[in-house]
Amino acid sequence: MEPSSDLKDAVRELSEQSGHLFSVSPRPVTGTSLFVVHTDDQPFRPEYTVPSGVFGFRVPFNFPDAGPEDSFFIRPVEIKLRSPDPVRGSIELHRAAKVDGFVAESALGNVPVLIFSWHLWNKTPWNRRKHKLLDHYTHCIRRFELPEHDS
C-alpha cells in the first residue's frame, strides 16, 4: 500500500504552509494502515537539551476521511529537560513515552520515538472536508509548547 495522492498532496501543502520540510513514509507502519509524516528540523522548546530534531505524526491511509492520530512524536529519544520541572523535580519528559515500532517502515527506520498523546481533536472533531494537516500540526505545536507539568 502506497500513500494516496490526497495524502501526498496534503503533506506537500503542509510543508509549504509550515515552513518545515515534511515527508510521508512510502509504506504504512508494520501491522497498521498508518503512514508516518515527519520533519527533521522542528525547533524544540528552549527547556529541552536538544534544540531541534524530528517531529511527526501518523496519518491513516484513508486521509482525509480519517484524520491524523491524536498524538505526535519527537526524536531523539534521549531528550531531557535542562533543569528539573518544578512539580516533579525531574528532568524526564513525563508527558512523553518511549515506544518502539511506532515509525517502522518510515524513512526514520525502525527506531524508538517519544510519543506525546493528547486529545487534540476532542473539542472540535476532525472535519474531513474542512481540516488540513496544518490544523493538526498547529494543534500539536500548541500542546507541545505547554509547560512540562501540564499533565
Binding site: 497498521t32 498508518l34 491513516p60 476521511d65 480519517a66 515500532g101 511506532f102 510519543i115 481533536w121
Partner: peptide
Amino acid sequence: SSRILIQEAQGNQRNIENRATYGMPM
C-alpha cells in the same frame, strides 16, 4: 467517525499512544 477510522487503521497497534503514556506494554 474519524476516531473509529483511526482505530481501525491502527491495526495491531490500536491505542498504542494511550498505552505508551502510562508505560504499559503493547
